[in-house]
């Protein structure tokens, strides 16, 4: 008996979280007169909203931009994060602890303080409306360093010593020896970084003005806020769907990793 209540609550909960997304997708492929109906199954498929969206905004270009930006940031964060994490966990050098505490401190620093000066830096570097402006400030991430440091600590020293005897340089050790043994850390940092940069919108709104350089969330935001959707709900929802879909698809496949990664940020606090 109690069981049934559990399932009722869980089911209501699941509907609450899923319904808006299902509606979004079905309304975006519904014929125009059905869009406002909050239906789940359109009477027939109609891709007009998508056609209009492709006409109105360079969404394909924005998708490419987002891909380039998010992938570059993710690769950068993985490479630099593991380099620094390795030095901090496995090497002895003067100032190591100081650097570690510096990293911890920067994690607590609210971004609100650096927002304006960082924008001015980008302007002075001439990086407004460029990939550099979107990528470079995000190439380093304190949390990823901490995570790599933590993970590398758990790898047996023997492995590293053996590699050294074989004449491996430190860079080789990081990428050939440690990386294959740190897949969970790489996945966690990779997912977190990719997701965060894919969904980032405030920074893009600040440094990108040229429509052909805009990232997907920025383009969709401006499209939704500005007048160009010309009050056509279907087009807006089509844009939202296109923005959400890549992450949702990735989530369907790597659901467990997504949940673990996100949860680990909380647990590390």
């Amino acid at each position: 008996m109690k069981r049934i209540f559990y399932y009722i609550f869980l089911f209501v909960g699941a509907i609450t979280f899923l319904y808006p997304f299902i509606w979004m997708i079905s309304a975006s492929i519904a014929p125009e007169n059905e869009i406002g109906n909050l239906i789940l199954f359109p009477s027939h498929l109609n891709f007009n909203s998508y056609k209009l969206m492709f006409e109105k905004i360079p969404i394909a270009r924005a998708f490419l931009n987002s891909m380039i930006v998010s992938s570059s940031i993710t690769i950068g964060v993985l490479v630099f994060g593991s380099m620094v994490g390795y030095a901090l966990s496995r090497l002895e050098f003067w100032g190591r602890d100081a650097i570690f505490y510096l990293i911890i401190f920067t994690m607590t620093l609210p971004f609100q303080i650096t927002l304006i000066p960082q924008y001015i830096l980008i302007v002075k570097f001439g990086w407004v409306d460029s990939y550099f402006g979107l990528i470079v400030p995000y190439l380093m991430n304190a949390l990823s360093i901490i995570m790599f440091r933590q993970y590398f600590k758990s790898i047996p020293q023997d492995l590293i010593d053996a590699a050294r005897i074989d004449g491996c340089g430190e860079m080789r050790i990081i990428f050939r020896i440690l990386w294959p043994n740190s897949i969970p850390a790489i996945i966690t940092v990779g997912i977190l970084t990719f997701m965060a940069s894919w969904n980032e919108v405030l920074w893009a709104l600040i440094v990108i003005r040229d429509e052909s350089m805009m990232t997907m969330p920025q383009l969709v935001t401006l499209f939704a806020v500005g007048g160009r959707a010309e009050s056509q709900l279907g087009v807006k929802l089509a844009a939202a769907t296109i923005l959400a879909l890549p992450i949702i698809i990735a989530y369907l496949f790597f659901q467990k990793y997504f949940i673990q990664s996100m949860a680990s940020t909380g647990l590390k606090e």
Partner: peptide
């Protein structure tokens, strides 16, 4: 260049 608004593009 197409941007957030032509005013912002000019300022940039």
């Amino acid at each position: 260049p197409e941007g957030q608004s032509s005013e912002e593009v000019i300022l940039a």
